[in-house]
C-alpha cells in the first residue's frame, strides 16, 4: 500500500533535513591544529585558536540560540540588545507601511494605465526608466529629503513594491476579456460600477500575483535597507551581530528572515487563490 504523496514527500523532507544537520554537525565538530601560546594571549584568541574548535557554530549551538530567542523574544536591554521579536516587529511594520502605501498608489494608477491607451503610452517611458532602478539607489536621496532614517527605509520599501503591482495591475486590467466589458456596456453600466463589478474581479488574480511578487521583493529589500539605516530591524540585527562576530545569531536571523518571508508569501498566495475564478 502506498501512502499519499504528501506523506511520502514529508518523509523525504525530514530525511534530507536530518542528513543536512548531521553533516553540519560533523563538519563543525572537528578540531583543527592548536598552537601553544601565552595564556594571556590565548584568552584574547578564544576557543578557535586554543582548542582548535571550529569557528562555525554547529547545529546544537544554533538550536540553543534559537531556543533562547524564542523563550524571550521581546526583551529590551538598550540600543544594541533587543529581542528578536522586537527587531522583526520593526521590520514587519516598515514593510507593511511601505507596502500599503504602494498598494494605494499602484492599483489606481494601474487601472488608469490599463483602461486608457493614452495614459498607457504616456506613462510607459517613466515606468520603463524607474522600474529597473535598485531600490537602495534611492536611499541617499530619501535620507537627504526625508531626513529620517526609519521613514527612508519605508520609502525604499514603497518604491520597490510599487512596480510589480503597477505593471501587473495595468496588464490585468488591459487584458480583461472584451466580451465581459461588452456585457457591461450593453447593460449601460457606468464607468465606476464597471471598474468594481467587472474589471476588478476579472483582473484580481493578476493584481494579486503582482502584490505577491511585491511583498517578496519588499522583504528582500528591508534587510538591506535596515543594514544601511541601522537602529532597529532584523537587517540591523544581522549587521550588528556580524560586528559582534556572533555567527550563531547571524544564522538564527537568517532562519527567521526565511520563515517570515515564507509566511508573507503564503498569505498573499492564499489571497490569490481566494480571488481566482475557474473558467
Amino acid at each position: 500500500m502506498t501512502r499519499s504523496l504528501t506523506f511520502r514527500a514529508a518523509i523525504v523532507s525530514i530525511l534530507l533535513f536530518a542528513a543536512f544537520v548531521l553533516v553540519w554537525h560533523l563538519a563543525t565538530r572537528g578540531s583543527g591544529a592548536t598552537v601553544a601560546m601565552d595564556p594571556e594571549y590565548a584568552k584574547l584568541m578564544g576557543a578557535t585558536a586554543t582548542t582548535g574548535k571550529s569557528a562555525m557554530p554547529g547545529p546544537l549551538d544554533v538550536g540553543a540560540t534559537v531556543w533562547g530567542h524564542l523563550k524571550d523574544p521581546f526583551y529590551d536591554r538598550g540600543t544594541n540588545d533587543k529581542g528578536l521579536g522586537i527587531q522583526l516587529g520593526w521590520s514587519i511594520l516598515r514593510v507593511t507601511i511601505g507596502y500599503l502605501l504602494a498598494v494605494l498608489v499602484a492599483i489606481p494608477i494601474g487601472f488608469l494605465i490599463g483602461m486608457s491607451p493614452l495614459m498607457s503610452k504616456a506613462l510607459d517611458p517613466f515606468i520603463q526608466v524607474l522600474k529597473p532602478i535598485s531600490p537602495l539607489a534611492w536611499m541617499p536621496l530619501a535620507l537627504y529629503t526625508i531626513k529620517d532614517s526609519g521613514l527612508s527605509a519605508v520609502f525604499v520599501i514603497f518604491i520597490c513594491s510599487l512596480w510589480p503591482m503597477l505593471v501587473n495591475t495595468a496588464f490585468g486590467v488591459a487584458s480583461v476579456r472584451k466580451e465581459w466589458i461588452n456585457v457591461a456596456r450593453t447593460l449601460e453600466v457606468g464607468t465606476l460600477r464597471r471598474i468594481f463589478t467587472v474589471l476588478l474581479p476579472a483582473a484580481a488574480p493578476t493584481i494579486l500575483t503582482g502584490m505577491r511578487i511585491s511583498i517578496g521583493i519588499a522583504w528582500l529589500v528591508i534587510v538591506a535597507a535596515e543594514m544601511l539605516v541601522g537602529g532597529t530591524g532584523i537587517g540591523y540585527f544581522v549587521w550588528n551581530e556580524w560586528n559582534n562576530l556572533s555567527i550563531t545569531n547571524v544564522i538564527t536571523a537568517i532562519l527567521v528572515i526565511g520563515v517570515v518571508g515564507m509566511i508573507l508569501d503564503q498569505l498573499l498566495a492564499r489571497a490569490t487563490r481566494a480571488v481566482t475564478f475557474p473558467e
Partner: peptide
C-alpha cells in the same frame, strides 16, 4: 453572445 460571456466569478 456567441461565447455566452458569463462573468465566471
Amino acid at each position: 453572445f456567441q461565447s455566452h460571456a458569463l462573468l465566471p466569478w
